[in-house]
Design a protein around this nucleic acid. Structure first.
Length: 327
DNA sequence: ATGATTTGACCATC
DNA sequence: GATGGTCAAATCAT
């Protein structure tokens, strides 16, 4: 296993993973297109199934690559290559960087524009959670653009030497349009929540066209699919709440009237029955309430009885102004 | 106390 | 010299 990826193939491996992720992303977009009703009001189930199979194939391939690269002897560098200070920054005296100046003011001369490496550009109508944890390191007003450009680096830059960066800039107000430029490849171990789910072969993407969890710590809802929409709500949550994900009932093997299920070991527990345009359901442990999204709003409902939009408490709306970022 | 973000300064590139 | 990318001190959030 140690020499599974020869040294000169590492770049190819990284490119392979990147291309697979791109393929997965484009397939997801295709699925969104296919899911829209045709003129006769029906969707193309056959095409949807095919897209689901393609998505599943991408997922399994990435999972295989991930597992073959997860051992300690992996040639992909995931260990610390830079000594760090407590705050995670490189220590100047030990830095492998080219500069070594006396005063902190002088160190400002260290910044060098990085050579343009592999670059991918994505334009989306929403802010994208790509599964990695980023740390903002700068913001710049760009000439001829009313919106600033935001600079992010991988949060594992100093502890794992990951050189991935991204730039995010709003390019259009209405309808909202964002451009994200990714540079460099992630050499770090990926984020434990979202990315692990993406690469987890136990999750069958044919059954998870809608999947919602929520992070009670920072009060944000996440849609942890490929390019989840991130939105916040006014909901009050407790620290000790744990995450729950509910899967939609588009699994043909499922024989129940409920629309959403909580997977528990090998069985599925029905948690919600919905009608109308409910697009996602979630709940937290220790709570009797089920939260759901409908018509662009997040509602909280007591799950012991039938509920309706009129009866349930609206926690907040999904709005760009509500995002935890400034754009 | 610690970690993340903001923001002005510095500097490479064009 | 203008512009954009990065640094790092100051500030903010938890």
């Amino acid at each position: 296993m140690d020499s599974q990826w020869p040294e000169n193939s590492l770049a190819d491996l990284k490119m392979l993973i990147k291309e697979l992720n791109c393929g997965q992303e484009f397939t997801h977009k295709l699925r969104e297109v296919i899911k829209k009703p045709l003129g006769n009001g029906y969707t193309n189930i056959f095409a949807e199934n095919l897209v689901g199979k393609i998505m599943s194939s991408f997922c399994k391939t990435l999972s295989i690559l991930n597992s073959s690269n997860s051992n300690e002897n992996s040639p992909i560098p995931v260990v610390a290559v830079f000594p760090c200070r407590k705050d995670g920054r490189m220590s100047p005296e030990d830095s492998t960087g080219s500069c070594k100046k006396s005063s902190s003011k002088d160190r400002r001369g260290c910044n060098k524009k990085r050579k343009i490496s592999a670059k991918s550009i994505k334009e989306t109508s929403t802010l994208v959670d790509d599964g990695h944890v980023w740390r903002k390191y700068g913001q710049k007003q760009i000439l001829d653009s009313p919106y600033p450009r935001h600079y992010y680096r991988c949060t594992n830059k100093f502890d794992q030497g990951c050189e991935a960066i991204k730039q995010v800039q709003r390019i259009q107000a209405n309808p909202p349009q964002f451009r994200t430029i990714y540079q460099g490849h992630h050499t770090c171990k990926t984020h434990p929540t979202v990315s692990r789910m993406l690469l987890d072969s136990s999750i069958d993407y044919e059954d998870t066209s809608i999947l919602l969890s929520f992070n009670s710590k920072d009060n944000h809802y996440y849609h942890p699919y490929n390019f989840p929409t991130l939105f916040s709500t006014k909901k009050e949550t407790k620290e000790e709440d744990s995450l729950s994900c509910f899967y939609p009932n588009n699994n043909q093997n499922q024989s129940s009237t409920s629309d959403y299920f909580l997977p528990a070991n090998d069985s599925w527990t029905p948690v919600a029955e919905t009608s109308g345009d409910v697009m996602a359901v979630a709940s937290s442990s220790g709570s009797d309430n089920v939260d759901y999204i409908s018509s662009g709003s997040v509602y909280s409902s007591c799950c012991t009885s039938t509920h309706s939009l009129e009866m349930d408490m609206m926690l907040g709306s999904i709005d760009f102004d509500d995002l935890p970022f400034e754009f």
